[in-house]
Design a protein around this nucleic acid. Structure first.
Lengths: 101, 101
DNA sequence: ACAGAAGTTCGATAAACGTCGTACAATGAG
DNA sequence: CTCATTGTACGACGTTTATCGAACTTCTGT
């Protein structure tokens, strides 16, 4: 069951922005960016149920923000930083930047 | 009826990203960025009705992306570029940048 | 005063969204 | 084999969203 990942050239800005416009998903992306080690879905401190997590990870994957690879029963998530930087230069950096005081 | 504009310090990233995640609104922002002259709502080539335009301009305004000032029967829209740059440095530039070939 | 132009307001509607719970499949440990 | 772990699939739910049309307000020109 190889989940669908869009190619870099197919990434759509509106779709990516929508994927990033949810607080839970924003937190996922922030944690992934903070520690570049791929991490299983359960390794995030989200205050929603498992099935909701599945939903959010799918939205991020189908938008092309993250990549998922199966490993045992876990699914390792990693940020598609290079692809995003190539297609939308500066976007991820701006989204991940701490808010100025 | 002075419409509500959020203060710069109150701009919320998720809200701004959501406001930018719609094709119509993205086009509005692009046109506003291309020509820094404030423009009336009707001056955009949108393929939706007037009342839908009202909706989109309100979403952008309440997210803090645009500023609206009344002038006669028109409402002039301008991008809050300085405020956005101050609060989310690089974000607007990344969103407005042409997609690399 | 009247007519036109520019937007808003107010339902309405159909679709998408975020969330949950339960049931299910697949893998790894004992 | 059995069982716990990890995540998915599916249906359900209430909310939000994007869209429209019709009626309305406000200003401007004549």
């Amino acid at each position: 069951m190889s989940a669908h990942h869009p190619a870099t050239a197919e990434l759509d800005l509106a779709t990516v922005l929508h994927a990033l416009s949810d607080p839970q998903r924003l937190q996922i992306v922030r944690e992934l960016a903070a520690d570049p080690e791929p991490r299983a879905c359960g390794g995030f401190d989200l205050k929603v149920t498992k099935s909701t997590c599945t939903h959010h990870f799918r939205v991020l994957r189908e938008a092309g923000v993250i990549e998922q690879q199966q490993l045992g029963t876990s699914r390792l998530n990693s940020l598609r930083r290079a692809d995003l930087d190539e297609r939308f230069p500066g976007l991820l950096d701006a989204v991940l930047a701490p808010v100025p005081a």
